[in-house]
Simulated scan of single mutants.
Amino acid sequence: MRPVFFLSDFGLEDPYVGVVKAVLAQRAPGVGVVDLGHGLPPQDLRRGAYALFEALPYLPQGAVVLAVVDPGVGTERRAIAAEGRWWYVGPDNGLFTLAWLLDPPRRAFTLERVRPPTPHGGFPGWSPGGYTFHGRDRFAPAAAHLALGLPPEALGLEVPVADLVRLPLALTPGPEGEVLTFDRFGNAITTLLQAPLGGWVEVGGWRIPVRRTFGEVGEGEAVAYRGSGGLLEVAVNRGRAREALGLREGMPVRLL
């Protein structure tokens, strides 16, 4: 049985995460489910794409990556499962863009043959349904199917991997890139793959030194460094770079 690694923007205040896990347990009893996180900013595809990029190299190959950040749920956007060295299940909306730089998919399938789960119990006049919880109704059953090692062809039609949606993002060695997203500490994660120690980075009109870590500058000072995901990040020691420096997603970043 393949383990399932689950990422979403569902949060923990509502039962959505637990319901998805319940469906996984119903369809694939005993499957191991690991939470990659559920506190992503709602509908933030760039943040979700980066979270998968950072996590993927540490997941066991062959595992099922179930990811749900889905502003287009219930619309014509496709629900898909894609196979690379890992399996990917989620909306075809660009969420897997950066993960697929590390692991280009070889095959992909739609999920129109997936049977939604059947609820236990009910009362007269009530019926399950709705079109806004594909995490429960499509993605969890598909992930359980793949976790059991069953053939992906049973999920739906095969589609060309070239037709899968990608976000307009590119990782680059420089000298120019952009702010990709922010983590919960307010650090800016960029699309730059490298920057020489002792050099400088320019972003938002600020000229920022490249160091090894936060503690190599004074408290309240800005610093650029190679982050845990291998991308250049910009932080403020004991502060929040996003607010302190006035940074935003898509802002140009340049190596000096």
Rank of each mutant, 00 (worst) to 15 (best):
I189V: 15
W87R: 10
G90M: 06
P15W: 03
L255N: 00
P252E: 03
I208W: 07
G62S: 09
Y88K: 10
R27T: 01
Y58G: 11
R226Q: 12
P117Y: 02
L193K: 14
A147I: 02
T190W: 10
G177C: 05
E76I: 13
L148Q: 15
I189K: 11
R226W: 14
G230D: 11
E243W: 11
L12P: 01
P41Y: 04
W86H: 11
L36D: 01
G250N: 04
I80Q: 05
Y225T: 14
E243M: 07
P196R: 15
F53R: 03
V165D: 02
N93C: 08
D163I: 01
G122E: 03
D92P: 12
T191A: 11
V33Y: 01
R46A: 15
A143M: 09
A195I: 10
L24M: 00
I189G: 09
L148N: 10
G239Q: 12
V69K: 15
G149I: 07
V4L: 07
D183C: 03
G239I: 14
G130W: 10
V203K: 13
E158W: 08
L56D: 02
R77I: 10
T190K: 12
F5C: 09
F214D: 15
P41E: 03
R166N: 06
G177F: 05
A195D: 08
A241W: 05
L164Q: 06
P168S: 01
R115N: 01
R184N: 15
E76Y: 13
E216H: 12
R113W: 11
H38W: 04
R113H: 14
G199L: 13
V19N: 00
L232I: 13
P168V: 00
G186E: 15
V165C: 03
W87F: 13
G227A: 13
R27W: 05
L171P: 02
